[in-house]
Design a protein around this nucleic acid. Structure first.
Lengths: 327, 327
DNA sequence: ATGAAAGCGCTAACAG
DNA sequence: CTGTTAGCGCTTTCAT
């Protein structure tokens, strides 16, 4: 009891294998009546095209890789990007192969491409100059980076949000609330153009509207690191009355630091973040933050891999301030 | 400039294509010296085996699907399970194809299997009787369910945690803290054997150690639903002094309800959850909860798909109480 | 608009 | 231990 092949369908329908193939792909070059007949036989025999054979013969593998560092698998943005990528890819008949890369082994990423298992890769990286992205690129793999600009990729192979605009909106908002002394919690910025965009915009807007920001760099994109950075800012001589953290996880750490110090939020300290992760809605108090359309960004990434000649549907995805009770 | 094939390597190394194939798969039936020679040529020519051709010929596709409902993509457990599955699969040379299924379209799941794109599926479902799992199973796809027992699958095709033990530990803990009036927040339990295991154990232990639980059913596994259930419990006549929620997200909702009512946690109300999501560590106050080894569970799921004849390495993954400040 | 023939790159079966 | 032969199921190319 072998599986049903296009040959079986062809024989049964009294047509050639070629015709079956064309019908399966809904080619306009087959007469409608013939299609009807062949489709009926497919149905009756329970025929399902073998994607592996199709890929071998056509040299087109209908799959894309989604590559993320092992450490960022748990990041809330990863899930949303992955979901968006799956949905968009599926619409075009592509599958998404999820792959994680350990920081010490960036060379593993291109194997999927070299073995013809995928025809391109979406990456979510925290670093502008990422060995994993380099390795993919050097292997000739079409790569699109999500959220993060990448040194080795053309600008239109990076689908980013309007990080500068979002950060500017957050600082403007804090100023409008009457805050003079502002604090900024950053992440390892030297490595990340995404972080730099948010940081530079924050500094620029702050300088244009009042005293400069006092910035503290967290040493990772984690709640823990945000907590420590928050402590540092809150124990300084002239404590800020508002803090903008360049990610929500960092901001959650700042909230924890405020709680430690017995500061009421937003009474004694206002806090704003960036990303609008689910957590932001339900922390105590709910966090003012910047949101951007993750699923659209992932979908655009898929489009730039699969229709590389089509014009990008946007340059930067819009960022929007979501005001909640923390400010 | 076509790609390098095993034929090119064979010609260049002066051996047969078959030998190249055996060397690529590191067969013990090839003389070490021959391997050396062939490997050198592979290296020199930049040969990378074509996984698609191998799959077609051998009828073994080295990929597994990881299937989850669209609504649960963002669930924190999903990321950990996926990461564990990827790591375990990769160790055996398999890739993970991530796939989401909309609730209204359960029939889409088997397509990946029928097209020979994957040789089995890991599923993460909230329902014991899930149309998506049924569809996969009916299509003949080997399926292993993670965390959730499934009606149509053999017991050893479900890799679950010790839900009963974890819930029991939580209730015992609350009793030891001196609480008499206990509340329970459940999720839609009729559909979920996982939920039932936690609920039944909680009721049983509570009954054996004091007055019965007063239970409220949240209508989803979300923070929002937990918030509403928490409100219901806290507005009742004789308010409980401690609440056990069968998931952390529900528990976070209960914390929010407590904050609304101006109740101090744990002073006026103790709260415990289940799952130990990252959020639990950093909410305010940090949440007492039950943890279990997600990555091990995913790895075991992969093993049961790829080595179906090997004995399971465990029956239920151990669950452990993590005591934090909320109790 | 359809058919015939060839072959993608590999592995399996068998022979030696 | 290694070589020979055949063919996985499909798409492509060319012919009609």
């Amino acid at each position: 009891m072998g599986r049903v092949t296009s040959r079986d369908v062809a024989r049964e329908a009294g047509v050639s294998q070629n015709t079956v193939s064309l019908v399966a792909r809904d080619s306009p070059r087959v007469r409608p009546e013939t299609k009807q007949t062949v489709r009926a036989v497919m149905e009756r025999l329970g025929y399902h095209p073998n994607a592996v054979a199709a890929a071998l013969r056509s040299h087109r593998t209908r799959a894309l890789a989604f590559v993320v560092h092992t450490r960022f698998v748990h990041h809330p943005l990863t899930a949303a990007l992955l979901a968006g990528a799956i949905a968009a890819a599926e619409r075009q008949g592509y599958a998404i192969v999820a792959h994680t890369v350990r920081d010490d082994d960036p060379a593993a990423a291109p194997d999927l491409y070299r073995s013809q298992s995928v025809s391109g890769a979406l990456v979510f990286s925290r670093r502008t100059d990422d060995p994993m992205v380099h390795a993919l690129h050097r292997a000739g793999c079409p790569v699109v980076s999500l959220l993060q600009p990448c040194a080795c990729l053309a600008a239109d192979h990076c689908v980013a949000a309007d990080d500068a605009g979002g950060a500017a909106a957050a600082i403007h908002h804090l100023r409008r609330r009457g805050h003079r002394r502002l604090g900024l919690v950053t992440a390892p910025a030297a490595e990340s153009a995404l972080a730099q965009a948010r940081i530079h915009a924050a500094h620029a807007v702050a300088a244009a509207t009042g005293p400069p920001l006092s910035a503290v760099a967290a040493d990772d994109w984690t709640v823990e690191a945000g907590l420590e950075a928050g402590r540092a800012l809150l124990s300084a001589g002239s404590r800020p009355t508002a803090i903008f953290a360049i990610s929500d996880r960092l901001a959650v750490g700042v909230l924890a630091a405020a709680a430690e110090s017995g500061l009421a939020v937003p009474g004694d300290l206002a806090v704003a973040g960036f990303d609008n992760i689910e957590w932001a809605r339900y922390c105590n108090p709910p966090l003012t933050t910047v949101e951007f359309p993750l699923e659209d960004i992932a979908a655009e990434g898929v489009a730039r891999l699969l229709q590389p000649q089509a014009p990008p549907s946007f340059d930067q995805a819009p960022a929007r301030l979501v005001v909640r009770r923390s400010t």
